[in-house]
């Protein structure tokens, strides 16, 4: 455990909190991609299959991981519920149209071909890493289509990008401090995932310095 990772995890939780706050305060889910949220739910459910066989009391880190894993699955399931049931009428159904098959199928292929070990859990785990790296795309697509988003929605995406950036720093840190740290799958997928936010960040900061709502050209 290092400060970059701890900061990344906390920022990840905070981003989900910001999103829930946006939905609860505005009582609408306009501008939020249900497709991205469902992909995240899929990512967490496939990534954290080990919850089924890991003893959470094994160590302090196991307990820490277990709490966060349950939190991520539960919170993303809750957001999907809010979007599909409670605030269904406000959902941007006409604009949230990115074809997720174009993301899921390649992630399945990549997981099947490139993994650490040839076991079911390892293949599913690798799939979840590849899936997460591109899961934000429907959200960015929706953002581009609508052109303007509410502040809290843009903060949510910014927090997610920040969490990714901290995880990259965490890997750099671990690379130099742990001699046997060679996690190439995380490196590749994580770099792609973080890079996807670059364009968004450019406009986010441009609009923040002007003190305006996020508007895309």
């Amino acid at each position: 455990m290092n400060l970059f990772r701890l900061g990344g995890d906390l920022l990840h939780v905070f981003s989900i909190f910001v999103l829930t706050l946006k939905i609860k305060t505005s009582k609408n889910v306009a501008g939020i991609s249900l497709r991205t949220q469902q992909l995240y739910l899929l990512v967490f459910c496939t990534r954290y299959l080990d919850l089924l066989f890991t003893n959470p009391f094994r160590s302090g880190l196991t307990m820490y991981n277990t709490v966060f894993k349950i939190l991520f699955i539960a919170s993303s399931a809750y957001i999907v519920y809010l979007m599909r049931k409670k605030y269904k009428q406000t959902y941007s159904v006409k604009d949230d149209t990115f074809r997720v098959e174009f993301l899921i199928v390649p992630a399945c292929l990549a997981g099947t071909l490139f993994h650490y070990r040839n076991t079911f859990f390892e293949i599913v785990w690798a799939f979840s890493i590849y899936m997460e790296s591109v899961a934000i795309i429907p959200q960015l697509y929706l953002l581009q289509k609508t052109g303007e988003v509410e502040n809290l929605t843009s903060h949510y995406i910014a927090c997610l990008g920040g969490y990714r950036a901290l995880y990259l720093l965490n890997w750099v840190w671990r690379f130099f401090t742990e001699p046997r740290y060679r996690h190439w799958i995380e490196w590749i997928a994580g770099t792609i995932q973080t890079a996807l936010y670059a364009d968004f960040f450019y406009y986010y900061f441009l609009n923040k310095t002007k003190g305006q709502k996020l508007k895309l050209p």
Partner: peptide
């Protein structure tokens, strides 16, 4: 090797 040794992150 334990599953957790390889996957100790979130």
């Amino acid at each position: 090797m334990l599953y957790e040794t390889l996957h100790d992150e979130l």
